Amino acid sequence: QVALSRTQVCGILREELFQGDAFHQSDTHIFIIMGASGDLAKKKIYPTIWWLFRDGLLPENTFIVGYARSRLTVADIRKQSEPFFKATPEEKLKLEDFFARNSYVAGQYDDAASYQRLNSHMNALHLGSQANRLFYLALPPTVYEAVTKNIHESCMSQIGWNRIIVEKPFGRDLQSSDRLSNHISSLFREDQIYRIDHYLGKEMVQNLMVLRFANRIFGPIWNRDNIACVILTFKEPFGTEGRGGYFDEFGIIRDVMQNHLLQMLCLVAMEKPASTNSDDVRDEKVKVLKCISEVQANNVVLGQYVGNPDGEGEATKGYLDDPTVPRGSTTATFAAVVLYVENERWDGVPFILRCGKALNERKAEVRLQFHDVAGDIFHQQCKRNELVIRVQPNEAVYTKMMTKKPGMFFNPEESELDLTYGNRYKNVKLPDAYERLILDVFCGSQMHFVRSDELREAWRIFTPLLHQIELEKPKPIPYIYGSRGPTEADELMKRVGFQYEGTYKWVNPHKL
């Protein structure tokens, strides 16, 4: 086992960053958080920038500027975001240094004079007029057009580079997404736009490419001749908990499936790229999406959770019991969808996408189930092999396979070949997804960000279904809070070829 401390991990990262040409360590950078008073800024962006600063992973002359409508001070920003920093008493001095680099400007999102004030403020910072500028839009999409237009007109660096990070949702359907994309691309070049999907920053999602293309053993079996089906799962054990009003506007397909799960599907299904260059990788992902037809209604199961009468606390409440959810809402909190990649490698292999709230566990994984062994000599005792990439929690890679049961006879039983990170790298604290992705933006690497043509294809696949749901308002199937979801989803999976045995229990190697 390799035991690495946080300091050692960050030392390795620093070495990698400083050796590259793309990370300008000594240049002045300004990180501007648009929507600095909001939840995302408070819980994710400010803490992430602090962790990067604490670990010495930001360029040395980096300033952080918050911008929002609320009249706040840096002290206010500190008060609301610091509880999420997880700072230790030993880091007190470092924390003071961090907040000394912070400033805040209040202004409207659609007022040109406010942006001119913001620009004057940035120019007044040390070497601010020639600094590289990175704008993070932690804002609702309704203000994107006004904000990007004003940034472009008043706040661009004339000497350094300018980059803009856009948070999902990128529209509600193909038409609104196209409108937003066309607007942003009329102001910024594609190499300046970073559409963030934080799932692409997760260690195991990034590991998929290495697993596939750096190991000879997987190449020959990664196709329709050997793989019976692919299941991509995202499960949350909690409901909307008072935030249903926002969720109800989008629903589970827009929230998770059309982005996170579809991105994971691309990494499983794509061909080997010409290189690890950002556009070479994204070219292959677009090719996969172009091979997927629009979702067919007979390959869809929609569910909505109801309270568990035997549960406790939140578990007793259904989705419609959330006071922020519109009365009688038919918005799905669970969806199972089957897609097919219609190309030579994957023809006929079902890709089953499942996601839901208020389920029995927290889990995100990719599961490849292989065909049955031909010419069975073990009297149907063999179960199908599976390769599982567990994204969260407890990152893991393992192969479910058959071995001989101890004893006199040739009785096979299920076991696993474990390729888990935790076994080799004991207690290594890896940077989280937002840390990686923000560092990628500083480096100018777009590999783990969504390109406009990729986004367009993703919406093309799901828009007809979303429009049909909005028009017909089908009643989702009720499922109990804390269950596996509607049984109809299991029946759909069985119908397209997935075999669920229920006889195997994964042993978490992190707890051995």
Rank of each mutant, 00 (worst) to 15 (best):
450 V>N: 06
385 N>R: 00
403 T>L: 12
297 A>M: 10
286 V>Q: 09
360 N>R: 06
289 L>Q: 02
389 I>P: 00
339 L>W: 01
391 V>Q: 12
408 M>C: 15
362 R>Q: 07
294 E>R: 06
340 Y>N: 12
381 Q>C: 13
471 L>W: 07
259 N>G: 15
309 P>G: 06
472 E>K: 08
364 A>V: 06
458 A>W: 13
289 L>C: 07
465 L>N: 00
441 V>F: 04
380 Q>W: 07
398 Y>F: 12
496 V>N: 12
474 P>W: 11
332 A>Y: 03
391 V>S: 14
472 E>S: 08
402 M>C: 09
428 V>R: 07
266 C>F: 02
356 G>D: 03
500 Y>I: 14
501 E>R: 07
420 T>E: 11
417 L>T: 13
306 V>I: 07
443 C>W: 09
293 S>R: 10
413 E>N: 09
319 Y>L: 02
338 V>Y: 03
498 F>A: 15
388 V>H: 10
275 S>A: 06
429 K>R: 05
383 K>T: 13
383 K>S: 15
325 V>I: 07
306 V>A: 07
295 V>S: 05
414 E>I: 10
335 A>Y: 01
406 P>S: 11
304 Q>T: 10
307 G>E: 06
349 V>E: 03
299 N>F: 06
262 L>Y: 00
257 M>C: 08
451 R>M: 02
391 V>A: 15
443 C>K: 02
508 N>I: 15
373 V>M: 14
467 H>Y: 11
297 A>E: 10
510 H>L: 11
445 S>R: 08
460 R>Q: 09
445 S>T: 15
288 V>L: 09
404 K>Q: 15
331 T>M: 06
500 Y>E: 10
337 V>N: 05
373 V>A: 15
415 S>Y: 10
280 D>H: 07
276 T>W: 15
395 E>G: 14
419 L>G: 03
330 T>K: 09
380 Q>M: 10
331 T>I: 06
408 M>H: 09
410 F>V: 07
403 T>H: 10
424 R>E: 13
359 L>N: 02
428 V>W: 09
343 N>I: 02
317 K>R: 11
477 I>Y: 09
341 V>P: 02
392 Q>D: 14
268 V>D: 02
470 E>V: 05
423 N>L: 04
492 L>A: 04
380 Q>G: 12
405 K>Q: 14
296 Q>D: 09
475 K>R: 12
310 D>A: 08
311 G>W: 09
470 E>D: 10
511 K>E: 11
280 D>T: 06
477 I>R: 12
322 D>I: 09
292 I>G: 01
271 E>N: 08
376 D>R: 09
379 H>L: 09
497 G>T: 14
381 Q>K: 13
288 V>H: 02
314 E>R: 07
401 M>C: 11
450 V>L: 15
388 V>S: 09
421 Y>A: 13
384 R>M: 09
374 A>Y: 10
440 D>G: 04
268 V>Y: 01
460 R>S: 03
377 I>L: 15
471 L>S: 12
412 P>Q: 15
398 Y>L: 13
319 Y>N: 00
362 R>C: 07
413 E>V: 11
428 V>A: 10
276 T>A: 10
446 Q>M: 06
401 M>E: 05
336 A>D: 03
357 K>I: 07
482 G>H: 05
402 M>Y: 15
326 P>I: 06
425 Y>W: 14
376 D>W: 10
486 P>D: 01
402 M>D: 06
390 R>W: 04
508 N>G: 09
327 R>W: 10
436 R>V: 08
312 E>S: 08
435 E>H: 09
478 P>A: 06
451 R>T: 04
416 E>V: 15
493 M>D: 07
448 H>Q: 11
333 T>C: 02
501 E>L: 02
413 E>P: 04
390 R>Y: 06
